[in-house]
Each structure stands twice: as structure tokens, then as C-alpha cells.
Design a binder for these strands. Structure first.
Lengths: 242, 242
DNA sequence: CTAGCACCTATAGCAACGCTATATGAACTA
DNA sequence: TAGTTCATATAGCGTTGCTATAGGTGCTAG
């Protein structure tokens, strides 16, 4: 019931705080809980971190180091836009693996406190987008593209965190990801990525029909027929361009 | 220094809480501050709202009513995708006008607490996207499009809130907005937000789907399924209703 | 008119919170 | 050995969210 090892108190405090934060389920974590789990008394905390917020900032900083390490981990594939996709997916996975930490890092950013973290994350993505820009694959300046993609990335991750784990649909992520990349990339890159021309008209028509049917209560089909019909429609209209 | 008027204590508490929350700058707001500003003692708060969180939930609910009212305020332009743009901009403006409230509403959503708010916001956008889908302007099912667009919308708004007001660049919003809409819309709609929206219907969509299916041999359905599917399509597309 | 009955609010106080003034021990420097 | 610095502990202050209990208000019933 306590974090021991031979670690120094400062590290034990950090670890205890991170663990309690991760399992708090959103409710507040008290300094007394932290110090007890770390096997330390109150003044030790304030000696090392000055503040409760100071301790939490340190936890966030450690979390961000982990995030950056994860983003730098993989080798460049030579296809910058493909690397951007991997950065996006890494970001989402990081958020889903440590939702409480993520919410502190990206869900609660106030102007006065710390846009620094976000700035670093932006720089990381901009760096990668620069390579795409060099090879003429980018439609907009790398900085603007990075900000835009990161914003969408954060929004998607927050949405997924808000959903209960069993019913999380990662398609939201891949779809939004590709939409953003598609939008900032040049025409050539688009043609390479997607083979839409063939079945897109089917998909569009199916989507339109689906919406129209639900809106206008057609009585041309029985309810059981309609149910099966709609199921097939859904199958067609979600046959993806992934 | 106190909220008076002849309002009942419940309303005064709500107003005091909203005001303190808006000016708190992110730091915590105590029940004692709230009750004092409302000119009321502690048990009154707990009688009406049960909880501090209950009071804050009520504030958020009021804020969400305001948000929905803002989203429903303008008249449909007849061009669904243009209306989506306006919904997006309204969303951003709401967030920038009441950043603290917005952070509570969209920046701190936990799975267990309240995805209800998000679900309503999604439904609002899906409703509008349905109109676009009926007129064949949509590339993906309205529900998925709504989730995706809203996620990006939230992400952008949070990013803008995180920046200090003087250096906020709204181009991030319009760029991301158009990128998302562009990505979920069909080619025709991209070229010219065309207005054959009025005459589109079940029949037209069914005919289009029928033609498209026969032309491109989708492999989403088995041959026997396809036969029955086409028969139903025929029944729908030769019916005289609307 | 009065008795009873919901409703709503106030007095007073508890346990838990973040934090600190002060003191004690251990390790190193001179 | 004496002095200095770093790190931890004892004890307690003021504030927090919340509540057990009781008192006042406006109502309808008799």
C-alpha cells in the first residue's frame, strides 16, 4: 500500500502522484493521499515542489516527455504524410492510455498557465510537415497545417476519451485524420492516396437514400424489409475509402 | 457586492456561481464565495442543488441551453453546408465568449459523468448534415460526419482559448472548418454548393443508387442479397410518393 | 381563525483540505 | 570539531465542502 523501493522521496512523490491521478477517475487527489502513498509527510512535498500545482506540473512534464519520446520513436518512412498519420495515431493512443493525464495536458489549457506544452507539440508536428512541404506535398504553410491538424487531433482524442471504452469507435479518428491530411495536401498526393472515383457514386447515393428514407417514412417496404434494407445500405455507405 | 433583485435564492445562486466561474480565471470557486455573493447561507445551496457539482452542472446546463439557442437562432440558408459553417463559427464564438464555461463543458468530459452534452451537440449538427445528405452533398454518413466535424470544432476552440486573446488567429478556425467540410462533401458540392437540394428525395436517391450499383458492381453484398436489394430499390423508385 | 403541513432558510460545527512555522536529523566543508 | 546546508518530521492554522438540527414562512383544512 505504499511506494517504496530505494527511490528518493522526490521520485516516490512523483510516482505516487501519477498513480493516484491515473486512478482518480476525475475526482480530486489530495496531498495527504499522495504523501501517504509515497511514505512521506507533508513538508517534504512542499520542500521539493513548492506547491501541489508544482507537483502536478512535474507529473505533466514527465508525461509530456513520454509523449515526445513516443512521437520520436519510430523511424521516418520516407513518406512524410504517412509519418504524420503515425504521429496522429500515437497522439490518440497516448490519450487513451492515460486519459486523466491527457485531460490535464490538453483539456484544461488556460491562456495564462501553459501553452508551452501545446507549442512543443505543434513544433513536433511542424517539423514533420516541413519535410512534406519540401517535397511539394503541402497545400498550406507547415505551421498553419500543424496547428490545424493538432487541433483536430486533440478534439478527436478528447471525444474518444469521453466515450466509454467498450463503445469507442476508432474510425472517428482515422476518418478525421485522413480528412485533415487530405485537406492540407496537394492534388498529386490526394490521387495517390485514394481510389474513390469508382465507388464513390455508390456510396454517395446510398448515403443520400439512407437519409431520405429516414426522413420521409416511406411505406413502400414493410418494417422488416426496411430494417434489412437499411442494414445493407449501412454496409454500403460505410464501405470505406480507408 | 451581492446579487439581489427579487429573484428567488435558487436563481441567485445560479447567477452568482456563473459569474464567479466566469471570472475565476481557472482557479477554484468556493461554495462560501458563491453563497455570500448570492446573499444566502450554505444549506440553501445544498437544499436546491444537493451538491457543489450539482450547482455547477446546473450552470453548465444553462450554458448549454444558451449554446443550443444560439445554434438554432439563424434561419436555414437553403445551403446546408453553408449552415454547417455558421454552426461551426457559432460554436467557436460561444467558446471564446465564455471560455471558463466552455472548458467545463467540452474540455473536461469524463466517460462516467456526461457525454450527454456532447451527444446533444452531435445531434444538432447531424440534423443539419442530414439535409446535406438528402441532397447528395455528403460523402460519409451524417452521423460520422457530425462526430468528426464536432470533434475538430472542439479541438480548434480549445486551442484558441489556450492562446492569449490579443494573438488569437481565427484563420486556424476557418481553415480547419473548410478542410473538414471539404473532406466530407461530394465533388459536386465542392465545385458549386449547388441547389438541386429541393427536389432530391427518396426516389431520386434510389434511382441514383440503382444506376450506380449496376455500373460499378459493388462487392459489399452477395449476389442474392443484391438481387433482392435491387428489387426493393425498384419498388421504391417506381413509387409515386414524393 | 387556527392547526397542521409542506417548504425553505439559518445556526453551528465536523472532517478533510492545502499549506507552513518550527524543530530535528544527516551529510558534507573548513 | 564546529559550522553550514540539505532533507524530513511534529504540530497546527485557516479554509474547504458538507450536514444535523432547528426555526420561520406561506399554504390549505377544519
Amino acid at each position: 500500500m505504499s511506494i517504496d523501493g530505494q527511490l528518493p522521496p522526490k521520485a516516490r512523490l512523483l510516482r505516487a502522484a501519477a498513480e493516484l491521478l491515473a486512478n482518480s477517475g476525475g475526482s480530486a487527489v489530495s496531498t495527504r493521499q499522495i504523501t501517504q502513498l509515497a511514505g512521506v509527510t507533508a513538508p517534504t512535498l512542499y520542500h521539493h515542489f513548492g506547491d501541489k500545482e508544482g507537483l502536478f506540473d512535474a507529473v505533466v512534464a514527465a508525461g509530456f516527455d513520454e509523449y515526445v519520446a513516443g512521437e520520436r520513436d519510430f523511424a521516418p518512412s520516407g513518406q512524410p504524410l504517412e509519418d504524420i498519420r503515425r504521429m496522429w495515431d500515437n497522439h490518440v493512443q497516448f490519450g487513451l492510455k492515460q486519459p486523466e493525464l491527457y485531460l490535464v495536458m490538453f483539456g484544461n489549457i488556460r491562456p495564462e498557465s501553459r501553452p508551452a506544452i501545446v507549442a512543443d507539440a505543434e513544433a513536433l508536428m511542424e517539423e514533420m510537415l516541413n519535410k512534406a512541404a519540401v517535397s511539394g506535398q503541402l497545400n498550406v504553410p507547415p505551421r498553419e497545417a500543424a496547428r490545424s491538424i493538432l487541433a483536430a487531433n486533440v478534439g478527436v482524442t478528447l471525444m474518444l476519451i469521453a466515450e466509454k471504452a467498450p463503445e469507442r469507435n476508432l474510425e472517428l479518428s482515422t476518418m478525421t485524420r485522413d480528412a485533415m491530411i487530405f485537406a492540407v495536401s496537394t492534388e498529386q498526393a490526394r490521387i495517390n492516396d485514394s481510389d474513390d472515383s469508382g465507388k464513390s457514386s455508390v456510396v454517395v447515393a446510398a448515403i443520400a437514400l439512407n437519409a431520405a428514407l429516414q426522413a420521409s417514412h416511406s411505406d413502400q417496404l414493410s418494417s422488416s424489409e426496411l430494417k434489412l434494407f437499411l442494414e445493407w445500405l449501412h454496409r454500403i455507405s460505410t464501405s470505406s475509402t480507408s
